[in-house]
Design a protein around this nucleic acid. Structure first.
Lengths: 114, 114
DNA sequence: TAATAACATAAGCATATACTTATATAAGGA
DNA sequence: TCCTTATATAAGTATATGCTTATGTTATTA
């Protein structure tokens, strides 16, 4: 559930790209220039960020302008915090692998330990 | 800077372990039992979590009781949010690779684009 | 229409990661 | 002291990841 999100932001180059896009929308070639990295490298990382829903884009002529998806980012973080700190019973609402595992038979984690 | 943190929590098994430890301190063998995973597997993931500072432990007889480091976790998340959304000028305070890159010559990211 | 610019994608490779099996170590108990 | 329990760690392996080089593709421009 959060794996895609954390893998996306857990890679240094992708985090740099994201941080740049927080400031302003940029086309791919601008990102290349600022980060001084090859075009395919940037392009491949952007793909991952898009798949994670953290980056969107629009076409402007030849250029592809990328933008930071602020709400997706924030929602991911908030949902993660809820997941971590909600009373375990409430996690049932999360359709999450961890929740399923811990509440496999509808019992609490504590019960599974006994 | 945040790479260690996100790599630690970005792996499903480690996230499960963390979520368990939020509830209560557990020894390694308890974690094995709840997650139904092999001992070395749990042990190796715990190592990563400890290196990220997210898990601590204490010895009790033969057992090693693991605990969730709540403050380290929270501080990582908070610092990350500050990093993402602070005005770019303030990021100088972060001794971070991204900040160094983007402010390499003391100019703003915007200037580097011109 | 040919050439170029801005991208995406494929192929290949080296390293990292996550797991298993096997072995080491340290603490208690018989 | 020997055995067992609880844990760490090493070795091996398969897959994932991140990069480079090479090649497609689409939109502009000459």
């Amino acid at each position: 559930m959060f794996e895609t999100f954390f893998k996306a932001i857990g890679e240094p180059t992708r985090l740099k790209i994201l941080r740049l896009l927080v400031e302003e929308d940029l086309c791919v070639c601008d990102i290349e220039e600022v980060l001084q990295m090859s075009q395919p490298r940037i392009s491949q990382h952007l793909k991952v960020l898009k798949q994670a829903g953290l980056v969107g884009d629009r076409k402007e002529g030849q250029k592809t302008i990328c933008n930071f998806n602020h709400s997706a980012f924030t929602e991911n973080l908030e949902e993660f915090q809820r997941f971590m700190f909600s009373p375990i019973e409430e996690i049932k609402n999360f359709e999450d692998e961890v929740a399923r595992l811990m509440l496999l038979d509808g019992t609490s984690c504590e019960k599974k330990l006994n």
